[in-house]
Every structure is written in structure tokens, then in C-alpha cells.
Design a protein around this nucleic acid. Structure first.
Lengths: 345, 345
DNA sequence: ATTAGCACTCAACCAGAATGAGTGCTAACA
DNA sequence: TGTTAGCACTCATTCTGGTTGAGTGCTAAT
């Protein structure tokens, strides 16, 4: 059997209608929906075919039909083909420059969630190469040293350490010069024993301080790698969709959204399966995370330049408004790109 | 009427039993529960009295009784009096030194939630006086300047700015000295026009840079004040308590836990109403946040020295295990104090 | 003062009937 | 031959009324 034009029209009508109501849709409804060109009986015949082909299913014998995962997949693929580049007007979603990246991401997640009415997820950039760009030691107290580390991508990390011996301003200046001339441009892996012993040699009296600084820098970068920042927002939006909000499912889904490790898996999964557009749609079981098998997940990858990548995700019911979500994500990606490219100059 | 000893025994039995089961408890149950010293009929009479006095209520005519808010209040006050300082053994809750405060707090919230099976909330320290302790400008790129600001309490903030003109190392050194000698020890409010114009005068050619730096510093501190860090964890634990987990209530409560502004109100409310022990119990309507009127909220205030205070909160059903929660919080506070006192040295 | 006994209440549960949305099939029609 | 009207059938949902059982309040006996 083949998907002729009428079947496609009917399938689309079913999906559209189901997206609006969330209820199984019957033949009469569709007959009215589509300019009443065909009677309900005709529609019934076509629906029977569509069911046989696996695009729609019946929750029980005497109910209407709802789209199957295959049906949604067809629908989404159609949208993806259309590629309308019309830029959507997003309410208040302008990506403004606001201090720390962390805040931008939080803010963004919030806006995404409230714009779409689904749950939103944003992961911060993932570093892989972590080249040191700059180190600065400063004396804050008599016995407190502040270590500021800047790695490629202009990510800044601070660490505060206590030192036994007091260090004079001049000594500190020398240490700073020493550290920067020796370490700049190296990745964390490249700072091996050879480099370290050479450094210590030159440090003279303050080799313990050098030791301390190096281990703290390594620890700070490592800690950041382990604890990938992931922000979620609008998780409670799922209560707006009855098919997800019974206690059992809601609890499971919300737990998953609280559980950073699982989300990290999701993000990793996304990174493995790159599409050329950077946007990926997972319907039901296609999702890399088991707990989301009753949802759809749409993800986009954004780039901060220098190979730093992060992931944005929208999690909603299978009957989510794919068109809107896809448009929103595309627009957002463009804006992010523009912002960060400008930023970098 | 007076609360004689028998009434107290029965009231406690009712509350204990209800805390375990979550079901209304009847006279026969209590009669068996309390060494069968009294028959169910006697219990019934006493219960009738207790109801009249407002300690317990009947959800409907032919059901058992459940504690009223007043009943819980009585029970909690009893526990608070007992003041057992027995240190509880908390699984894996050792407050280890782990890099950034942010991570410690997240980690702590997670542990609290999984230890108690309620929702946990931790707010980071709140600054009020924000005295500048230290400013450091560093050149990262030809046109990129990194501003590191340390305020009292050793809180570090970073800001990256783009500058038009290139600045030499020597000039930067001078600027650093200039900024530090003029600004250290001042609060953000004390940096007024007078100070600024004096600074600019001395800055000479680079007065634009000074301008930029000042406004960025102010913005960074302000941003941090606005966006108080609050971490929640275990929000989905509320699904473990049927009386909270119907769609309606769960949705409302979870939304509230997602909504930082409301949580901030909660934290502020707590700070206003300090008890001497630093621990506060809100039962039902007593809570400063309307959405939590079906829950109980237990809060504790911790201190990081220098007057920096944060709040820890546990949110659970009214029938939460107050004894356990109170013990846990007391222990945690002790540990936190110990850790941070040691830290500071 | 305590308790046994009894009548009464009421949520929860269950079974059966009515309802109605929706289907599949068949026969008639253009 | 494709389309449609009609009809019997299915089945989730809703409503009804009856039953059960936990629990109470009252009264009378101890």
C-alpha cells in the first residue's frame, strides 16, 4: 500500500487534531475538519489503511485513533524538510549580554520553558582541550592566596588557598611571571612531571607554593569537568498534559529531570548523534533516556566558538507542537551564534 | 478543660500513628497501641475532648481522627523542649572540603533530601555589606581585560570586558595599584561620585577604562545580589506522600519549588523571624509561603563567619518525622560550623 | 470513672444498566 | 470502481443502588 495524497492529508489532520485536544480522534471529527470533502465512512476506510500501515493506533476497539511513534516521525520529517527560515518573533527572548554565562543559561532555560510550555534543559559548554591561557596569583590576606585561572574559551575559575609562609609582593610578581611563561598554551595533560620539576627548580624558596598552585589548578579544572552544569526549567509544565501527569509517570519523569547524571547521558547521547542542522528530534522510544519513552525530546547544539559546545533540549509530550519548538530552537541558535560571535569579535 | 496526662499520651499516640500510616486513626487502634490500658470507648471519650480542644479533627463523621495544626504544634514544641543533643549518625553527610561553595551546597541539598526523604532547599550566603577587599585587572588578550573582584567573606567574582585601546603591562600595574589604594574597604554604596571623579583624575589617559571597570564591578555585585543562589533537591520526594501527590497539589508545590523568587521570600521570612536556636518549624498555614500550606517547613540558619548567613530548609508533609528532621538539621549545623571555623583558622 | 453494647454515619467498593462515541461491514449508488 | 448511508457491534465512561466495614456517639450497666 502507498501513502497517497489523501492519506497524507488525513494523517496530518489526525495528528494536528490530536495535538490540540489530546483525545483520540474519530472519523466524524476528521470529516468535518477537512472541508467535508469526504464522508466519515471514507475516512474510516482510509484510517483503517493508515492503521494497517502503522501510522496510527487505536487505544481500544471503540475509540478514535491516535498517532503512533511512526506517525509522529513522518510528521516531523515533513516539517524538517520544509526548512522555512522565517525568523520567529520570540517574546523577550533576546539573548542579552549579562555577566556570567551561568546566569545567561539559567535565564534562557526559564524563557524557553515559559515560551513553549514544555520543560527546558540547557547544558553549559563542554570543554575538551582546556588549554591554559592565563594564571594570576594575588594576595588577598596575609595567608590567603587567590588563584585565577583562564582557559581557552575565556572560562574563568577561582580558587582560594591558604599558605603557610608569607610572600612579598615582589616575590608574587616573579611567581606570576614564572607560571605564565611556563604554562600558557599547555593543556592539563601536557603539564607533566618534567614541566613541574623544571618549574619547581626555578621557583626556589617557594616551591611548595608552586606545588599547591598546580594541584589546585588541576583540581579546579577537573571538578568542573566532572560536574557539568545542566540547568532545567519548567519541569512542572508537564502537569499541563494529562497523558503525562498521572502520579506514576510524573514522578518518574520529574525525578529524571532532577538527576543530573541521567541528563548528562542525554546530552552525551545527543553529541554522539549529530545531525547536520544541529537539531535532533527523539520521539518516544527513540530517546536515549528510558524514562522519557512517553515524551518527545527535541535537542539543539549551540557553539561558543573554539569548539565549545552545549546542548539545549525541550522535553514535552509526544503531541508537542513540533513546528513551534523547532522554529524557536532555530531562532535561538541564530541569536546565540550572533551574540557570541559579536562578543568574540 | 485541661490537657491531663492521659490526654497527652493519647494525643501523642494518635500523632505517632498518623505519621506512620497517613490514614485517620480510630479509637480501637489507639486502644491496642497504648498497652490496652484503656478500652476503645474510653479513648473515644478522650478523643472527643481532644477534638473539642482543637488538637485533632475528623475528616468526616465516621472516620478516625487526624492531628490538626494545633496538634502538630503541641507535638513539635514538646520535641523542641527535650533538646537531646545526642549527635545523630548521618550517612555520608560529612561536609567535606570541596572546591567551590556552590558545589558544597548542591551536594548538601542532595544528601539532605535523600537522607530525610523530603524536599531540601539550601540558600547560599547572603551578603549585605559587600565591602570590597581586592580588585585585580589582568590582560587576557590584546583587547580583553579580566576583572577579578574579591569582597568581604572571600567571595570572588570575575568579569571579562573588551577594551578599545591597548594597555601596557606597566600601565596595568599602575591602574591596579590606583584602584586598590582608593577602593579597598569601601562598600558599593560608598563608591560615590566624589571617589569616582578623584579616581578618574588620577587615572589620566585611561579614565575610560576606570569607568568601565567601575560599572562592571558594580554590575557584577548587583547581579549577584539579585540572583541569590538557591538549590533545591529531592522535590520529587513529595510523591511518596499520598496526601501531597494528587496532580493539583503536587503541581502547585513543585512549581513553587522551581520558582526562585518565592523561595527567596521564604528565606527572607525565615531571617526575619529568628529563633535563638536558629531552627524554626512552620506547620501548615504558619508557613510564610502560601503554596506550602499543606506542608510543614523546617528551616535552619547557618553561618559562615563574618555575618554571612544562609538558610537550609526541609519541606515535607505535615506528618513529617520532626524528630529525625530536627536532629539531622542540628547535626548538620554543628558540622558546618566546625568545617567553616576550621577553614577560616 | 470506665466499659460494653448498640444504633447510626459515611467513604469505599462493587455490579449492573444506560449512554454515546466510534468502528467495521455491507449494500446501494453515481 | 470509488464513495457513501445505514446498521449492528464494541467498549470506556458514567450513573445508580446496594453492601461492607471502620468508626463514632450515646446510654446503661458495672
Amino acid at each position: 500500500m502507498e501513502l497517497d495524497e489523501r492519506k497524507v492529508t488525513i494523517l496530518k489532520a489526525i495528528i494536528k487534531n490530536y495535538m490540540e485536544t489530546g483525545e483520540p480522534v474519530g472519523s466524524r471529527t476528521i470529516s468535518k475538519y477537512v472541508n467535508s470533502k469526504w464522508s466519515s465512512a471514507t475516512i474510516r476506510n482510509e484510517m483503517s489503511d493508515l492503521e494497517e500501515m502503522g501510522y496510527i493506533v487505536q487505544p481500544h476497539t471503540s475509540a478514535g485513533r491516535i498517532p503512533s511513534d511512526k506517525g509522529y516521525r513522518f510528521y516531523v520529517d515533513q516539517i524538517l524538510l520544509e526548512k522555512d527560515n522565517e525568523v520567529m518573533e520570540i517574546k523577550e527572548m533576546m539573548v542579552q549580554r549579562m555577566g556570567r554565562l551561568e546566569l545567561v543559561l539559567k535565564h534562557l532555560a526559564k524563557n524557553l520553558a515559559s515560551n513553549t510550555n514544555y520543560a527546558a534543559l540547557i547544558s553549559g559548554p563542554q570543554y575538551h582541550r582546556n588549554k591554559l591561557k592565563f594564571i594570576q596569583l594575588s594576595k588577598v590576606d596575609a595567608h590567603k592566596l587567590l588563584i585565577v585561572t583562564v582557559v581557552e574559551g575565556n572560562i574563568v575559575k577561582n580558587t582560594m588557598v591558604n599558605v603557610e609562609e608569607e610572600i612579598s609582593g615582589e616575590e608574587l610578581l616573579n611567581l606570576n611571571i614564572l607560571l605564565n611563561t611556563n604554562l600558557n598554551g599547555l593543556t592539563i595533560e601536557e603539564i607533566n612531571l618534567g614541566v613541574i620539576s623544571r618549574l619547581k627548580e626555578q621557583a626556589g624558596a617557594h616551591r611548595q607554593v608552586v606545588d599547591l598552585v598546580l594541584s589546585e589548578v588541576a583540581a579546579a579544572i577537573k571538578a568542573d569537568e566532572d560536574d557539568l552544569q545542566i540547568y532545567t526549567s519548567g519541569a512542572t509544565n508537564i502537569f499541563k498534559y494529562p497523558e503525562l501527569s498521572d502520579s506514576q509517570k510524573a514522578s518518574e519523569l520529574l525525578s529524571t529531570l532532577e538527576h543530573t547524571e541521567t541528563l548528562q547521558e542525554l546530552v552525551n547521547g545527543v553529541n554522539d548523534a549529530q545531525s547536520e542542522t544541529g537539531i535532533q528530534v527523539y520521539i518516544g522510544d527513540e530517546s536515549p533516556v528510558q524514562a522519557m519513552k512517553d515524551c518527545s525530546v527535541v535537542t539543539a547544539t549551540y557553539e561558543l566558538g573554539e569548539g565549545l559546545k552545549g546542548t539545549i533540549g525541550i522535553i514535552g509530550p509526544k503531541r508537542m507542537d513540533y513546528e513551534k519548538v523547532l522554529k524557536t530552537l532555530r531562532t535561538l541558535m541564530t541569536q546565540l551564534d550572533a551574540t557570541f560571535k559579536k562578543e568574540e569579535r
